[in-house]
């Protein structure tokens, strides 16, 4: 049986929400990957947390700057992946990354910058991050990180 599709229509009642692609994208493993989003921008925190949870089935927490991220680890918290903004007040991203590495934190750290040039990237990688991406973080970038994460031992 073949059905025809036409544009427009009249006797219809509702629009359907289809999320199959998103489901397809998400990680169905039983143990969720834990993520920490470090960003001073409340909009970014909300978007990134929601994206990691909805599209990748992660468990995401957020903090406002590098120092809060370091403090959280000092109090015993641990995450599989840390998404770290570059420019933040109090303690910025590459500095926090250095601190975390010096503390022996072995999480995967993903630096996020607003600048296209290589300076931020080099700083981040030199500080011990595994990746560095330009904002905005999107599905493809997270996927790239996750592919590596599968082989990543903590």
């Amino acid at each position: 049986m073949e059905s025809r599709w036409s544009e427009g229509g009249s006797s219809t009642s509702s629009i359907i929400i289809e999320k199959s692609m998103i489901k397809y994208m998400s990680d169905e493993k039983e143990t969720k990957i834990s993520a920490l989003v470090v960003d001073d921008d409340a909009i970014i925190r909300k978007i990134h947390k929601t994206m990691l949870e909805r599209l990748f089935n992660m468990e995401a927490e957020t903090v406002k700057d590098g120092k809060e991220a370091v403090d959280l680890h000092l109090s015993g918290a641990n995450f599989d992946i840390i998404f770290m903004d570059k420019e933040m007040p109090i303690m910025d991203g590459h500095e926090a990354t250095k601190h975390l590495r010096a503390m022996g934190v072995k999480s995967m750290i993903v630096g996020i910058t607003t600048r296209g040039d290589d300076k931020d990237k080099e700083e981040f990688l030199a500080a011990g991050s595994n990746h560095c991406f330009e904002k905005p973080l999107d599905r493809a970038k997270v996927q790239q990180v996750l592919q590596e994460h599968e082989n990543f031992s903590i």
């Binding site: 049986m1 025809r4 036409s6 427009g8 219809t12």
Partner: peptide, 11 residues
């Protein structure tokens, strides 16, 4: 955006 409607006559 495209609105698709299954043509009732088709089924």
């Amino acid at each position: 955006h495209v609105i698709c409607r299954q043509d009732p006559k088709a089924s």
